[in-house]
């Protein structure tokens, strides 16, 4: 009975909060069961009443990969660092799909859940966070597809496979960071929703999804790798295509994504105070 939520004698003070606040971890932990159910609800809702159901999680990245292979691999003959273009491209599309679908989903999530926000209090962060967590299901299914592709191309991951979790953590942090940022912005500025498809496309061409980072001129590379997705995508390729792990890019990306997360979370917390009045 010592937590803020358990005790009768503890007092809660309600007043206008200061502008900038950091994440209230104690509160998040108190409500953690809600995060679980919001995630489940998101997953169920997404695949309810669709004929193909979860197989969309296979079709989407696979179809994109095939298109990219035909257009960029066969017609444009972009370099794939010597690997089969299909595999080269799928290894990028797998984390990229997670990233792009998370921020797309998250950016509208608060507005879509305005009924919840105006009727009951809970940590608002859980709504975009639940989008990000739910997308891991699609990602896991994508991983199974990757295993099939690896068998097909008779490729085996190197011992660097043990670094995969590091990449996934960076992927998660950067996706959540942008998810928080865009969701908070779109409560006040609905323009975000309209700009989102364009932003996603722009970000895709700013990341080595259809091409290899090695095609970027060296002079630009130090700016280019500030994009955390560069380290993630090239890390994926390194693990499964036996390139050396690009630790420089990964650590840069990790640093940038943490900074992004801190800024976005602070912005979210600042904007959060007005969500119920604007959503």
């Amino acid at each position: 009975m010592h937590t803020r939520y358990g005790s009768i004698n503890r007092e809660m003070l309600i007043k206008r909060s200061p502008g900038w606040r950091w994440i209230d971890w104690e509160e998040l932990s108190h409500y953690r069961d809600l995060l679980y159910f919001l995630t489940i609800r998101g997953i169920r809702a997404r695949y309810a009443q669709s004929v193909m159901g979860v197989s969309w999680a296979i079709i989407q990245p696979l179809a994109t990969t095939l298109i990219f292979t035909v257009v960029f691999g066969n017609f444009a003959k972009l370099s794939s660092d010597g690997a089969p273009y299909l595999l080269f491209s799928f290894l990028a599309i797998l984390p990229w799909t997670y990233f792009s679908s998370t921020i797309t989903d998250a950016s509208v999530s608060l507005v879509q859940n305005s009924l919840l926000i105006t009727k009951v209090y809970f940590p608002r962060m859980f709504i975009p966070l639940a989008s990000a967590l739910g997308k891991w299901l699609d990602f896991s299914i994508g991983l199974l597809v990757l295993v099939v592709l690896l068998f097909y191309f008779k490729a085996a991951p190197g011992w660097e496979l043990i670094f995969l979790p590091i990449l996934l953590i960076i992927l998660f942090i950067v996706s959540v960071a942008l998810g928080l940022l865009f969701s908070a912005m779109s409560v006040q500025y609905r323009d975000v929703k309209h700009a989102m498809p364009f932003i996603i496309q722009l970000l895709m061409y700013l990341a080595p999804v259809v091409y290899s980072t090695h095609t970027i001129p060296l002079a630009w590379q130090k700016w280019y790798v500030l994009n955390p997705m560069v380290g993630v995508v090239e890390g994926f390729r390194a693990i499964f295509l036996h390139h050396p792990m690009p630790w420089n890019w990964i650590t840069t990306g990790c640093g940038v994504s943490i900074v992004l997360f801190i800024l976005s979370a602070a912005y979210f917390r600042r904007m959060e105070r007005g969500f119920a009045d604007m959503a």
């Binding site: 007092e11 809660m12 003070l13 309600i14 007043k15 009727k119 209090y121």
Partner: peptide, 12 residues
């Protein structure tokens, strides 16, 4: 759910 603009409330 929403914040007051001025003043405060205490809840036990």
């Amino acid at each position: 759910i929403t914040e007051p603009t001025f003043g405060e409330a205490r809840v036990r």
